[in-house]
Each structure stands twice: as structure tokens, then as C-alpha cells.
Design a protein around this nucleic acid. Structure first.
Length: 477
RNA sequence: GCUCCCAUCGUCUAGCGGUCUAGGACGUCGCCCUCUCACGGCGAAAACAGGGGUUCGAGUCCCCUUGGGAGCGCCA
């Protein structure tokens, strides 16, 4: 009776996978998983002009990076053009569609006139009931759906509720172009039907299409799938997402240092909620996801919240997973920031050792990489202004003063180093911070860093002493 | 212009007629912790767009206004 759930993600390969598409894919994926169904992937490449191979690759890579998988082979819509044509011809034969010979110029005039008269811009049906014998010679016709003239078309949407259109407001859409290729409207309906799609979950920019597609389903005598039109994601300023704020490809989020698990969690809460729960494991998301809890109003993209989630997931990631994640983006993000493009065994070991302190204070992998500067920096260190200030204000003198005690240390461990520094501070009746800050500046080139003694232990005795001597040597200079 | 959708703190949202002097999260601002920065803990400021109804009772239902958004192709 009830068919197994089949959802689909159907991007057109005219660009990268943007954040809204990523969320749509996520929702489809979650819904299918929730009900033990399948999520299919269909590339809507019927626009031969704008569809590109790199875009297809970007979409597939984007989904994979996000951790979204699809079932079965990828369906390429253009390859199914013959079947779409067949359906259009069938509709034509059944009298549910007709040839229209109106030229582009005529259609343009129609729109102009309608606009001028304040009427809705729609095809006037001039070829709807004309006899085929009136067809002008040499003009290739399109096939239009003979849509109902009166009554109403209803879409019972899981998100938007019951949405009604008066059929008089809907015109006879083109099913088959004059060149014999199907339009998107026809192709979607035929493919969703043939692929046994039970639930269409997509952006609400398709809501009006849903009405027209419903008419095609009805003309074909097919069951209309369940629909869920989810609100679009807006930029931080409330306007439509543009390249300047959120409409980046998901690959951009990877380069920005976000973790897929964090992006997924952020995205799932954009438009969907489950009581007050903010954090979801993948399993929890799947178990809790449902269409009826999706909100109807558009959401704005907020990087601050994404960062918070990302920080949360970084802190709870294992050190090795984090180092792996850094290594994968390093070739792309390392060199431009003065960092390495790869980690050799020694450097990897240092990252591993420093990771507990590093991941605790970074919100993105980029921040983490930046705060790990002291690990891969070569002497003499470049001091950021705040670090320079710490050393200039008596800091170098203090470093020089402390140096002998450190050089005399028999054992170089977090504990031993800390004890030595604390003893030094006590002897001079200084607060620990008065000693620690100049030390930090000399050792890391920064005014902030992970715990100082951990830093010293990871860096090792020789490197620490050398960096401190670099600064001590500049006393009075 | 026409059709359709939407409207709770700055942002994401909870709320499905009475338990709302409206809850959580991010962000913001204090305080605590503290070698810095984060984390963490405690606390604060911060919202039902406006106006009409319906009802004993409305953030919750209806209408209007205003404000957002989407669509209106032989693009998808």
C-alpha cells in the first residue's frame, strides 16, 4: 500500500553547489534515511548551453564533502529526452496538448500588451483550439499543455499547507520546445514519476511550478508526489543570498575551515527545529527529522552561529581527525597564509602534541592553523604588534633574566618548566602573568596562545632556548 | 503589474486558545575561573510588525494594512 520513500535531489549543473542546495540535499537525505528509503540524485542538464562538466563535478564533490550520499546511479536528465518527448506526443495524441505556432515575437508582444494593460503575463491560448490545417508552413511548433480553463489547482504542501491557484491564472505551458527537446516542467514530472519519487522536497522558489507540474501529472493520469517546499536561505542582510555573503559553494566553506559535521548541524537547524535541541548527531538528526517541523519563513545565514557550532565540533573531535582535516586543506590554505603546504612527520607530531591546547581555542581550522604559527615558524620569529609591545615594555629584560634558570634545567617537561618559571616569579615577587606574557611573546610571536608551559614542552628545549636568546640578544638594542 | 508564500529577541528558533510576567541557542554586556586567549560557570539587556475582529480568554484562529520573499521563458 504505502510505497517506500524515495526522495531526490535535482540540481542543475550551471554552477557550484551553494549553501541552499546543500540544505535541500540534506533534508532530502535525512527524510529518506528517516524512513528507510532512498535518495536519488538527478542532474538537470537539459539546458545544454549552461550545463557544464566542472559544475557536475563540483556538485558531486560538494555533496560528498558534506557527507551526503545518494542511492543508485546518478541520473542525467538530458539522456532521457526521448522518453520526455514520448510523453509529450502521447498527451498530444490524447488531445491533452496541442501544437502552438506562435513565434517568439508574438509571445513578446503578448507579454508587453498584458503588462501595459495590467493583466497577468500569460499565453493567450491562440492555438489551443485552432485546426491543424491552419498551421503556417515552415514553422516548427512547440507542444503546449491544454491546461484546464476553470476550476482550481491545489497543492497540499507539507510545509506551505494547502495552496490554491485559480486555473484561469495559469496558462498553457510549453512541454516540448520547437527543437523537439523537453522543457524543465515536463522533464521533472516525467522523471519524478519514472523514478518512483514519493516526496519532492525543494526550495519554495518552485512553489508555483508545483501547480503547473500538478496539471501535467493530472493530464498524464499519474499520482502527484508528496510535496514540501522549504523556504529559501537569505543573506545576513535579509536580501537574497548573493556571492558577497552566503552563496558560496560548499567548497568555500571547506576552505574557510569549517567541518562538514558542523555545517550539517547548522544547516539542519535553519528552517527546521526539534524543540530546543541545538546539537544533533547524524543519528539524532535522522531519527528526529520530519517535514512538518520545517518552518515557513525564510532564514538568514549567520556565520557567527556556524562558527560557534564549528568550535564545538572541533573541541569534540579527536586530535588525529583534526590533524587529518588540516592536512587535507593545507595545500590550498597553508601557503597563502605563510604556513606549510604539507606536514612532514616531525611537524605532524608537533601538531598532534599541541592539538589539545590548540583546538580548545579555535573556531575554524583556519584559526587553528593560524594559532599554530609557533609550531612552524622559523627563527627569528615575526612578532605581531601586541607581542612586540609586551617585549618592548621590559619584557626582553625579563626574558634575559629568566634564561639562565631555564638553561640550567635538567629536565624539560611541562611540569619542570612551569615550576622553574613560577619559582622565578616568586623570587622576584612578580605575578606569574608578568613573566608569562613576555615569555609567550618571545616563544610564539603572539600575545595569545595555548597554555604557555604546554607550548614550551611541545617546542622542546632547544627551540625554546634559541627563541628566548633571540629576544634576550635584543635587550637595549 | 499579476499570482503565490511568509511575519516571536540583532540572528536561528520553541510556542500548535488558558501552564506566556513568552522558553532555548548564537551574538552582545557584566561577574567568576585564569599565565594570555578560548572553554566553562553565573547573571543582564533583548521579541509576539500595526490595526480590526472571533472567543470567557489570542503570540496562537480570521480579515485588512505594512513589510519581506518567490514566481510569472521554447532557463532550470
Amino acid at each position: 500500500m504505502t510505497r517506500p520513500v524515495v526522495t531526490r535531489f535535482a540540481p542543475s549543473p550551471t554552477g557550484f553547489l551553494h549553501i541552499g542546495g546543500g540544505r535541500t540535499a540534506l533534508f532530502n537525505w535525512l527524510y529518506a534515511r528517516r524512513f528507510g528509503g532512498k535518495m536519488l540524485l538527478r542532474i538537470e542538464d537539459t539546458d545544454r548551453e549552461r550545463s557544464t562538466e566542472p559544475a557536475i563535478k563540483a556538485i558531486l564533490d560538494g555533496l560528498s564533502w558534506l557527507g551526503i550520499t545518494w542511492d543508485g546511479e546518478v541520473v542525467y536528465q538530458f539522456a532521457r529526452a526521448a522518453r520526455h518527448r514520448e510523453v509529450a506526443e502521447k498527451l498530444l495524441a490524447e488531445g491533452k496538448a496541442y501544437h502552438c505556432y506562435a513565434t517568439p515575437q508574438e509571445l513578446e508582444e503578448m507579454r508587453e500588451k498584458a503588462r501595459a494593460e495590467g493583466r497577468p503575463m500569460r499565453y493567450d491560448g491562440r492555438w489551443r483550439d485552432r485546426d491543424p490545417s491552419e498551421a503556417p508552413a515552415g514553422v516548427k511548433p512547440v507542444i503546449r499543455l491544454k491546461a484546464p480553463l476553470d476550476g482550481e489547482t491545489v497543492v497540499n504542501d507539507h510545509v506551505q499547507g494547502r495552496v490554491v491557484w485559480q486555473n484561469k491564472d495559469l496558462d498553457d505551458l510549453v512541454l516540448l520546445r520547437s527543437d523537439g527537446n523537453p522543457t524543465y516542467m515536463l522533464a521533472v514530472v516525467v522523471d519524478d514519476h519514472d523514478m518512483d519519487v514519493t516526496h519532492v522536497i525543494r526550495g519554495d522558489d518552485h512553489l508555483t511550478n508545483a501547480a503547473r507540474q500538478t496539471q501535467i501529472y493530472q493530464a498524464c493520469g499519474w499520482e502527484v508526489p508528496e510535496m514540501a517546499h522549504i523556504p529559501l536561505i537569505h543573506g545576513p542582510d535579509g536580501a537574497k543570498l548573493s556571492k558577497r555573503h552566503g552563496a558560496l559553494g560548499v567548497d568555500a566553506y571547506r576552505a574557510l575551515g569549517y567541518l562538514p559535521v558542523a555545517l550539517r548541524n547548522y544547516l539542519v537547524r535553519l528552517g527546521w527545529s526539534h524543540g530546543d535541541q541545538e546539537f544533533f548527531t547524524t543519528e539524532e538528526m535522522i531519527a528526529a527529522f520530519d517535514l512538518d517541523s520545517i518552518g515557513r519563513s525564510p532564514a538568514r545565514f549567520d556565520f557567527a552561529k556556524l562558527e560557534h557550532l564549528n568550535g564545538h565540533y572541533m573541541r569534540s573531535s579527536s586530535d588525529s581527525d583534526l590533524v587529518d582535516a588540516i592536512e587535507t586543506i593545507l595545500p590550498e590554505v597553508g601557503p597563502p597564509r605563510g604556513g606549510p603546504a604539507t606536514l612532514d612527520a616531525g611537524m605532524r607530531a608537533k601538531f598532534m602534541a599541541a592539538m589539545p591546547g590548540l583546538k580548545e581555542r579555535a573556531k575554524t581550522l583556519i584559526e587553528l592553523l593560524d594559532s599554530a604559527y609557533y609550531l612552524y615558524a622559523s627563527r627569528p620569529l615575526t612578532l605581531e604588534p601586541k607581542a612586540e609591545a609586551l617585549l618592548a615594555e621590559g619584557g626582553r629584560v625579563r626574558v634575559a633574566d629568566l634564561l639562565p634558570a631555564l638553561e640550567a634545567l635538567a629536565e624539560w617537561s611541562t611540569e619542570a618548566v612551569e615550576a622553574a618559571v613560577r619559582r622565578f616569579a616568586e623570587d622576584r615577587t612578580l605575578k606569574l602573568g608578568q613573566v608569562a606574557q613576555p615569555l609567550r611573546a618571545a616563544l610564539t610571536g603572539r600575545a595569545t596562545s595555548p597554555g604557555l608551559f604546554d607550548v614550551m614542552a611541545v617546542l622542546g628545549r632547544d627551540e625554546c632556548i634559541a627563541r628566548l636568546r633571540d629576544q634576550a640578544a635584543r635587550v637595549g638594542a
